[in-house]
Design a binder for these strands. Sequence first.
DNA 1: TTGACTGTATTATATGGCTAGTACAGTTGG
DNA 2: CCAACTGTACTAGCCATATAATACAGTCAA
Lengths: 125, 125
Amino acid sequence: MISFDAFKPTDGTPIYQQILLYIERGAVAGTIRDGDELPSRRVLSALLGINPNTVQKAFHLLEEEDLIESQAGAKSVMKIDEEKIRKLRENLLREDIRSITGALRQMGISREEAIRLIGQYWDEE
Amino acid sequence: MISFDAFKPTDGTPIYQQILLYIERGAVAGTIRDGDELPSRRVLSALLGINPNTVQKAFHLLEEEDLIESQAGAKSVMKIDEEKIRKLRENLLREDIRSITGALRQMGISREEAIRLIGQYWDEE
DNA sequence: TTGACTGTATTATATGGCTAGTACAGTTGG
DNA sequence: CCAACTGTACTAGCCATATAATACAGTCAA
Protein backbone atom coordinates (compact mmCIF):
# COMPACT_ATOMS: atom_id res chain seq x y z
CA MET A 1 0.00 0.00 0.00
CA ILE A 2 1.48 3.35 -1.10
CA SER A 3 2.08 5.68 1.84
CA PHE A 4 1.20 9.37 1.80
CA ASP A 5 3.10 10.19 4.96
CA ALA A 6 5.53 12.35 2.99
CA PHE A 7 2.75 14.20 1.17
CA LYS A 8 2.73 17.83 2.29
CA PRO A 9 0.26 19.85 0.20
CA THR A 10 1.19 23.45 -0.58
CA ASP A 11 -1.32 26.10 -1.47
CA GLY A 12 -1.04 27.77 -4.83
CA THR A 13 -1.07 24.56 -6.87
CA PRO A 14 -4.31 22.55 -7.28
CA ILE A 15 -4.37 19.64 -4.81
CA TYR A 16 -5.20 17.08 -7.50
CA GLN A 17 -2.06 18.11 -9.38
CA GLN A 18 0.05 17.74 -6.26
CA ILE A 19 -1.28 14.21 -5.73
CA LEU A 20 -0.45 13.46 -9.36
CA LEU A 21 3.11 14.76 -8.92
CA TYR A 22 3.56 12.88 -5.65
CA ILE A 23 2.80 9.58 -7.37
CA GLU A 24 4.83 10.38 -10.47
CA ARG A 25 7.89 11.50 -8.51
CA GLY A 26 7.63 8.48 -6.24
CA ALA A 27 7.62 6.25 -9.33
CA VAL A 28 10.72 8.02 -10.67
CA ALA A 29 12.43 7.72 -7.27
CA GLY A 30 11.60 4.00 -7.14
CA THR A 31 9.75 4.27 -3.84
CA ILE A 32 6.52 3.52 -5.72
CA ARG A 33 6.70 0.32 -7.78
CA ASP A 34 4.69 -1.61 -10.35
CA GLY A 35 1.80 -3.47 -8.72
CA ASP A 36 1.72 -1.29 -5.60
CA GLU A 37 -1.80 -0.70 -4.28
CA LEU A 38 -3.11 2.83 -3.90
CA PRO A 39 -5.31 3.81 -0.95
CA SER A 40 -9.01 3.96 -1.85
CA ARG A 41 -10.44 7.36 -2.86
CA ARG A 42 -12.44 7.57 0.35
CA VAL A 43 -9.60 6.54 2.66
CA LEU A 44 -7.05 8.86 1.09
CA SER A 45 -9.42 11.84 1.08
CA ALA A 46 -10.11 11.29 4.78
CA LEU A 47 -6.39 10.93 5.44
CA LEU A 48 -5.56 14.19 3.65
CA GLY A 49 -8.63 16.02 4.92
CA ILE A 50 -9.88 16.80 1.41
CA ASN A 51 -12.87 15.91 -0.73
CA PRO A 52 -13.11 12.42 -2.32
CA ASN A 53 -13.84 14.05 -5.67
CA THR A 54 -10.47 15.81 -5.59
CA VAL A 55 -8.69 12.47 -5.10
CA GLN A 56 -10.84 10.95 -7.82
CA LYS A 57 -9.78 13.70 -10.21
CA ALA A 58 -6.09 12.95 -9.55
CA PHE A 59 -6.57 9.18 -9.91
CA HIS A 60 -8.62 9.66 -13.06
CA LEU A 61 -5.73 11.58 -14.62
CA LEU A 62 -3.27 8.84 -13.57
CA GLU A 63 -5.64 6.41 -15.28
CA GLU A 64 -5.58 8.51 -18.46
CA GLU A 65 -1.77 8.60 -18.32
CA ASP A 66 -1.88 4.81 -18.05
CA LEU A 67 0.13 4.84 -14.81
CA ILE A 68 -2.52 3.07 -12.72
CA GLU A 69 -5.21 0.48 -13.35
CA SER A 70 -8.65 0.68 -11.76
CA GLN A 71 -11.71 -1.54 -11.76
CA ALA A 72 -14.98 -0.95 -9.94
CA GLY A 73 -14.94 -2.62 -6.54
CA ALA A 74 -11.19 -3.18 -6.24
CA LYS A 75 -8.34 -0.90 -5.25
CA SER A 76 -6.34 0.82 -7.98
CA VAL A 77 -2.81 -0.50 -8.58
CA MET A 78 0.31 1.00 -10.17
CA LYS A 79 0.97 -0.11 -13.73
CA ILE A 80 4.45 1.07 -14.67
CA ASP A 81 7.51 -0.29 -16.43
CA GLU A 82 11.05 0.89 -17.12
CA GLU A 83 10.09 2.70 -20.29
CA LYS A 84 7.25 4.69 -18.71
CA ILE A 85 9.47 5.68 -15.80
CA ARG A 86 12.24 6.79 -18.12
CA LYS A 87 9.89 9.09 -20.05
CA LEU A 88 8.30 10.32 -16.83
CA ARG A 89 11.69 11.20 -15.39
CA GLU A 90 12.69 13.05 -18.50
CA ASN A 91 9.47 15.06 -18.70
CA LEU A 92 9.36 15.96 -15.01
CA LEU A 93 13.02 16.97 -14.95
CA ARG A 94 12.74 19.10 -18.06
CA GLU A 95 9.64 20.88 -16.77
CA ASP A 96 11.04 21.51 -13.28
CA ILE A 97 14.51 22.59 -14.34
CA ARG A 98 13.33 24.80 -17.19
CA SER A 99 11.30 26.83 -14.73
CA ILE A 100 14.21 27.40 -12.36
CA THR A 101 16.77 28.23 -15.03
CA GLY A 102 14.27 30.64 -16.58
CA ALA A 103 13.66 32.33 -13.25
CA LEU A 104 17.35 32.65 -12.43
CA ARG A 105 18.14 34.04 -15.88
CA GLN A 106 15.43 36.68 -15.46
CA MET A 107 17.19 37.74 -12.26
CA GLY A 108 20.45 38.14 -14.15
CA ILE A 109 22.15 35.20 -12.46
CA SER A 110 25.04 33.48 -14.22
CA ARG A 111 25.39 29.75 -14.81
CA GLU A 112 28.18 29.51 -12.24
CA GLU A 113 26.26 31.42 -9.59
CA ALA A 114 23.16 29.30 -10.28
CA ILE A 115 25.12 26.12 -9.62
CA ARG A 116 26.63 27.61 -6.48
CA LEU A 117 23.17 28.63 -5.21
CA ILE A 118 21.65 25.20 -5.84
CA GLY A 119 24.47 23.58 -3.90
CA GLN A 120 24.11 26.09 -1.08
CA TYR A 121 20.34 25.73 -0.69
CA TRP A 122 20.53 21.95 -1.12
CA ASP A 123 22.18 21.61 2.28
CA GLU A 124 19.90 24.11 4.04
CA GLU A 125 16.88 21.87 4.52
CA MET B 1 9.40 53.33 -19.79
CA ILE B 2 9.69 49.70 -18.68
CA SER B 3 9.54 47.30 -21.63
CA PHE B 4 7.49 44.11 -21.62
CA ASP B 5 9.07 42.70 -24.76
CA ALA B 6 10.61 39.86 -22.78
CA PHE B 7 7.36 39.04 -20.99
CA LYS B 8 6.15 35.63 -22.14
CA PRO B 9 3.14 34.51 -20.08
CA THR B 10 2.79 30.81 -19.31
CA ASP B 11 -0.50 29.17 -18.51
CA GLY B 12 -0.89 27.48 -15.16
CA THR B 13 0.18 30.49 -13.10
CA PRO B 14 -2.19 33.47 -12.71
CA ILE B 15 -1.23 36.23 -15.15
CA TYR B 16 -1.21 38.92 -12.47
CA GLN B 17 1.39 36.90 -10.54
CA GLN B 18 3.54 36.57 -13.65
CA ILE B 19 3.45 40.35 -14.16
CA LEU B 20 4.41 40.77 -10.50
CA LEU B 21 7.35 38.39 -10.91
CA TYR B 22 8.44 40.01 -14.16
CA ILE B 23 8.78 43.38 -12.42
CA GLU B 24 10.40 41.96 -9.31
CA ARG B 25 12.95 39.89 -11.23
CA GLY B 26 13.73 42.82 -13.48
CA ALA B 27 14.41 44.93 -10.39
CA VAL B 28 16.73 42.23 -9.02
CA ALA B 29 18.49 41.95 -12.39
CA GLY B 30 18.95 45.71 -12.51
CA THR B 31 17.15 46.10 -15.84
CA ILE B 32 14.33 47.88 -14.00
CA ARG B 33 15.53 50.84 -11.92
CA ASP B 34 14.22 53.31 -9.37
CA GLY B 35 12.12 56.03 -10.99
CA ASP B 36 11.38 54.01 -14.15
CA GLU B 37 7.88 54.62 -15.52
CA LEU B 38 5.48 51.71 -15.93
CA PRO B 39 3.12 51.51 -18.92
CA SER B 40 -0.42 52.57 -18.07
CA ARG B 41 -2.89 49.82 -17.10
CA ARG B 42 -4.82 50.29 -20.34
CA VAL B 43 -1.76 50.34 -22.61
CA LEU B 44 -0.13 47.31 -21.03
CA SER B 45 -3.32 45.26 -21.07
CA ALA B 46 -3.75 46.03 -24.77
CA LEU B 47 -0.10 45.14 -25.38
CA LEU B 48 -0.42 41.78 -23.60
CA GLY B 49 -3.91 41.07 -24.92
CA ILE B 50 -5.40 40.74 -21.46
CA ASN B 51 -7.95 42.56 -19.35
CA PRO B 52 -7.07 45.92 -17.74
CA ASN B 53 -8.34 44.59 -14.41
CA THR B 54 -5.72 41.85 -14.46
CA VAL B 55 -2.94 44.41 -14.87
CA GLN B 56 -4.52 46.56 -12.18
CA LYS B 57 -4.46 43.59 -9.80
CA ALA B 58 -0.72 43.10 -10.39
CA PHE B 59 0.04 46.83 -10.02
CA HIS B 60 -2.10 47.02 -6.90
CA LEU B 61 -0.02 44.27 -5.32
CA LEU B 62 3.21 46.06 -6.31
CA GLU B 63 1.75 49.12 -4.62
CA GLU B 64 1.08 47.11 -1.46
CA GLU B 65 4.65 45.78 -1.55
CA ASP B 66 5.79 49.42 -1.79
CA LEU B 67 7.73 48.73 -5.00
CA ILE B 68 5.82 51.26 -7.11
CA GLU B 69 4.11 54.58 -6.49
CA SER B 70 0.82 55.52 -8.14
CA GLN B 71 -1.37 58.59 -8.15
CA ALA B 72 -4.63 59.08 -10.02
CA GLY B 73 -4.02 60.67 -13.40
CA ALA B 74 -0.27 60.01 -13.64
CA LYS B 75 1.73 56.93 -14.60
CA SER B 76 3.04 54.65 -11.88
CA VAL B 77 6.79 54.73 -11.21
CA MET B 78 9.22 52.29 -9.62
CA LYS B 79 10.15 53.13 -6.02
CA ILE B 80 13.05 50.85 -5.06
CA ASP B 81 16.38 51.14 -3.26
CA GLU B 82 19.32 48.84 -2.54
CA GLU B 83 17.79 47.45 0.62
CA LYS B 84 14.45 46.51 -1.02
CA ILE B 85 16.28 44.86 -3.90
CA ARG B 86 18.49 42.87 -1.54
CA LYS B 87 15.49 41.50 0.35
CA LEU B 88 13.62 40.85 -2.90
CA ARG B 89 16.54 38.90 -4.31
CA GLU B 90 16.83 36.81 -1.18
CA ASN B 91 13.11 36.01 -1.04
CA LEU B 92 12.74 35.20 -4.73
CA LEU B 93 15.85 33.01 -4.74
CA ARG B 94 14.81 31.10 -1.64
CA GLU B 95 11.30 30.50 -2.98
CA ASP B 96 12.42 29.43 -6.45
CA ILE B 97 15.30 27.22 -5.36
CA ARG B 98 13.41 25.58 -2.51
CA SER B 99 10.81 24.36 -4.99
CA ILE B 100 13.35 22.82 -7.36
CA THR B 101 15.45 21.16 -4.65
CA GLY B 102 12.26 19.76 -3.12
CA ALA B 103 11.11 18.38 -6.47
CA LEU B 104 14.49 16.82 -7.26
CA ARG B 105 14.72 15.25 -3.81
CA GLN B 106 11.28 13.70 -4.26
CA MET B 107 12.59 12.11 -7.44
CA GLY B 108 15.51 10.61 -5.53
CA ILE B 109 18.12 12.80 -7.20
CA SER B 110 21.42 13.43 -5.42
CA ARG B 111 23.03 16.80 -4.83
CA GLU B 112 25.74 16.06 -7.38
CA GLU B 113 23.29 14.93 -10.04
CA ALA B 114 21.12 17.98 -9.36
CA ILE B 115 24.06 20.28 -10.02
CA ARG B 116 24.99 18.34 -13.15
CA LEU B 117 21.40 18.59 -14.44
CA ILE B 118 21.16 22.34 -13.83
CA GLY B 119 24.38 22.86 -15.75
CA GLN B 120 23.19 20.63 -18.56
CA TYR B 121 19.79 22.29 -18.98
CA TRP B 122 21.28 25.76 -18.57
CA ASP B 123 22.98 25.49 -21.95
CA GLU B 124 19.99 23.95 -23.71
CA GLU B 125 17.95 27.11 -24.22
C1' DT C 1 -23.73 -15.59 0.91
C1' DT C 2 -23.49 -11.24 2.63
C1' DG C 3 -21.95 -7.00 4.48
C1' DA C 4 -18.45 -3.74 4.05
C1' DC C 5 -15.64 -2.12 1.24
C1' DT C 6 -14.39 -0.54 -3.65
C1' DG C 7 -14.71 2.64 -8.25
C1' DT C 8 -17.75 5.65 -10.69
C1' DA C 9 -21.30 9.12 -11.62
C1' DT C 10 -24.36 12.97 -10.73
C1' DT C 11 -26.07 17.46 -8.97
C1' DA C 12 -25.39 21.55 -6.30
C1' DT C 13 -22.72 25.34 -4.06
C1' DA C 14 -18.71 28.44 -3.09
C1' DT C 15 -14.49 30.75 -4.28
C1' DG C 16 -10.74 32.71 -7.18
C1' DG C 17 -8.95 34.14 -11.64
C1' DC C 18 -10.11 36.44 -15.72
C1' DT C 19 -12.95 38.97 -18.85
C1' DA C 20 -16.25 42.81 -20.20
C1' DG C 21 -18.27 47.14 -19.72
C1' DT C 22 -18.99 51.34 -17.43
C1' DA C 23 -18.07 55.25 -14.55
C1' DC C 24 -15.58 59.09 -12.25
C1' DA C 25 -11.89 62.03 -10.63
C1' DG C 26 -7.02 63.58 -11.23
C1' DT C 27 -2.80 64.75 -14.54
C1' DT C 28 -0.67 66.21 -18.37
C1' DG C 29 0.58 68.39 -22.73
C1' DG C 30 -0.60 71.05 -26.78
C1' DC D 1 -8.23 75.81 -21.13
C1' DC D 2 -9.33 71.28 -22.46
C1' DA D 3 -9.08 66.96 -24.74
C1' DA D 4 -6.84 62.85 -24.04
C1' DC D 5 -4.78 60.48 -21.18
C1' DT D 6 -4.16 58.53 -16.27
C1' DG D 7 -5.54 55.59 -11.74
C1' DT D 8 -9.42 53.69 -9.36
C1' DA D 9 -13.86 51.52 -8.51
C1' DC D 10 -17.86 48.83 -9.41
C1' DT D 11 -21.12 45.20 -11.38
C1' DA D 12 -21.79 41.07 -14.01
C1' DG D 13 -20.57 36.72 -16.19
C1' DC D 14 -17.57 32.49 -17.34
C1' DC D 15 -14.53 28.77 -16.10
C1' DA D 16 -11.67 25.90 -12.97
C1' DT D 17 -10.97 24.24 -8.35
C1' DA D 18 -12.85 22.32 -4.38
C1' DT D 19 -16.55 20.94 -1.47
C1' DA D 20 -20.92 18.34 -0.15
C1' DA D 21 -24.32 14.82 -0.54
C1' DT D 22 -26.15 10.99 -2.76
C1' DA D 23 -26.53 6.93 -5.63
C1' DC D 24 -25.35 2.48 -7.89
C1' DA D 25 -22.82 -1.52 -9.26
C1' DG D 26 -18.61 -4.49 -8.73
C1' DT D 27 -15.09 -6.93 -5.49
C1' DC D 28 -13.62 -9.30 -1.56
C1' DA D 29 -13.08 -11.50 2.79
C1' DA D 30 -15.29 -13.45 6.88
